[in-house]
Amino acid sequence: MSDTRTPGRLFRMWDNDIAYSFRKSPLAIVSGVVALVIVLAAVFAPLIAPTNPYDPSGLNLMDGFTPPMAPNAFTGNSFVLGADNQGRDVLSTILYGARISLFVGFSAVLFAMVLGIVAGLVAGYRGGWVDAVLMRIADVQLSFPSILIALLIFGVARGFIPPSQRETMAIWVLIVAIGLSDWVQFARVVRGATMVEKSKEYVQAARVIGVSPARILLRHVLPNVMGPVLVIGTIGLALAIIAEATLSFLGVGVPPTQPSLGTLIRIGQQYLFSGEWWILLFPALTLLALALAVNLLGDWLRDALNPRLR
């Protein structure tokens, strides 16, 4: 499809309004920088992390519970942010953990976004029973919070995936679980906008001259909803990262041998009372910083994309 108008328009918007609003908002700049630093650190974790926490042959259990910046009593090893209960360098586990959290978050949101946009476009454009069925499914889905849906999907996955592959599949199951529980918001926004656009004269005209519905939807309807979709997506990213942490807390997340930030927090909270604060504190702060930055960006983006609020 030779559609250059959409990115062009978005780009111009970015160039003028959005960038201006960004420059004017110190909070947006700070959160943008924080988010960028965490994302980059996670992407390049293998290059910058002091150790590879996934490589069991490099671990020494006796390093366990080494406090930050202090040598271990048995091994003499020292770690900037301390070592966790398995003797892993906390800094490295955070870098690798953020990688997994971000991967799960981005993939889940992308999955939800694609699913929600398709469902919303189809429901809004076709109307009738298709719309009724899709929206009833959305209603049912909304009655179950994401955590519950994810637990259900884990249950289904358990039935289908052979035990030997559950570990490797865990991360994909997590993505599907969080994504599936999150598509409704996208679908509703897109459906609403589609129904508004559908009744406009230019769409009616295009339909009369035989432009395919898919083309109408992608070319005329979709660009109009990209703003809200982007906002929902950004806030959804923060929610997805937190959902992953909560699922890991309930014990259905990624395995502890390849921890995400959520798994690290689950492990760390066991040591809240015993004085090994660094195992909980540093992953929790990273998660907080990441989710907060993404939330603030989403917030700012919504205001920026809604000219009436400026």
């Binding site: 929610l239 937190i242 807390f249 909270q269 809240l272 009372f273 907060l292 939330n295 917030d299």
Partner: peptide, 24 residues
């Protein structure tokens, strides 16, 4: 602005962690 930012901290921490921190 502080209220808006503080409200975001609330949603940026997992519920279980908030609970445990409150208990602590």
């Amino acid at each position: 602005s502080a209220i808006m930012a503080a409200s975001l901290i609330g949603v940026s921490l997992p519920t279980f962690l908030i609970g445990i921190l409150l208990i602590w």
